[in-house]
Amino acid sequence: MSFMILQTPNPHSLREALPDFSRTTHVFLPINDCRNVTEAEGGTHWSLLLISVVDGVAFHYDSLPPGNYWEARQVTMKVGALLGRNIRFIHLEDSPLQENGSDCGVFVCLSMRHLLMKRLLAANANEKVSMSLGGRKVDARAGRKEIAKIIDGFRKEGERRRSASLSPLGKKSRSPPRIE
């Protein structure tokens, strides 16, 4: 979605293709540095943009700065245009930093989960929430393992559902019990 917003000169032309943000409090947008719309798997780096619609503020988390600063700022301005209001852009200088050139996607996933689960969903409605990730340590290796485990769980669930829908009466066929 963020790539589509970034690459479209007039974001209002996307209104029907995008979700209705009128009842949304926060939008999480992975940002990629690909600028070539003809390149399906382009770009070399991912970062996270969290837009607090209720507060009119966008927070940019980049594990390899300056990284996607320009892209995140452009998406913020275009989302603001879609919402009909200015969105203040904050590039957070205290984002956890990756130690190599290949962990940016893992950092995006783990940061998104932390911000959602530990900050936004854990807060009271009238409570101010710190959106800083300063001092937070990210274990990319453990994160990769966790993400692989989640994907494997979805794969197994998909296989279970497919086999259940293919068997007679929508249930898994069972072998008769063996008598020994």
Rank of each mutant, 00 (worst) to 15 (best):
F3K: 12
G105W: 04
L64V: 13
F89D: 00
K171G: 03
F107C: 00
Y69N: 02
E159D: 14
C34E: 11
R174T: 14
P19K: 08
S2E: 06
N32W: 02
I5G: 01
T38Y: 13
V129L: 04
A140S: 15
G42A: 03
L133W: 01
S165Q: 15
R119C: 06
K145T: 11
G158H: 11
R113V: 11
E180I: 15
R15T: 15
P66T: 11
F3G: 11
H60N: 10
N124Q: 14
P96T: 11
R160D: 13
P19M: 06
H12N: 05
D55T: 07
H60V: 06
P30W: 06
I179Y: 00
D103V: 04
L48S: 02
N68V: 08
L116P: 00
F3A: 11
N86P: 02
R35V: 14
T25N: 11
C34W: 01
R88D: 02
G153K: 10
R73W: 09
P176D: 08
T76C: 13
K145C: 09
A58N: 07
K172V: 14
Q98L: 10
M1C: 07
S13E: 15
G101R: 07
S175Q: 12
F21Y: 15
G42N: 04
I151M: 10
H91I: 00
S132Q: 02
A81N: 03
R155P: 00
S163F: 13
D103T: 10
K149V: 13
R144H: 08
F28V: 05
R113K: 13
S52D: 14
N100F: 07
S63W: 01
S52L: 00
L83K: 01
C104S: 12
N124H: 13
E180P: 07
P177V: 14
D20Q: 10
C34G: 12
Q74H: 08
R113N: 04
F21N: 05
E93T: 12
R162S: 12
S13V: 11
R15E: 12
V138S: 03
A122Y: 04
N86G: 11
S167T: 11
G135A: 02
G42P: 02
G42D: 02
S173K: 08
K172G: 04
M77T: 14
P65Q: 12
F89K: 00
A148D: 15
V108R: 02
D62S: 01
H114P: 00
P66E: 09
L18I: 06
G80W: 07
A148L: 11
E146A: 12
T25P: 00
L49S: 05
V75L: 03
Q74K: 06
L50R: 00
G80T: 09
D62G: 01
R119A: 00
I150D: 10
H60W: 03
G153Q: 09
A58F: 07
M117W: 09
L83R: 07
G67F: 04
S63P: 03
M1W: 03
D103C: 04
V79P: 06
R119S: 08
S173Y: 10
R15S: 15
F21C: 08
V79D: 05
W46A: 04
E71A: 06
D152N: 12
S22M: 12
G43N: 05
R136M: 11
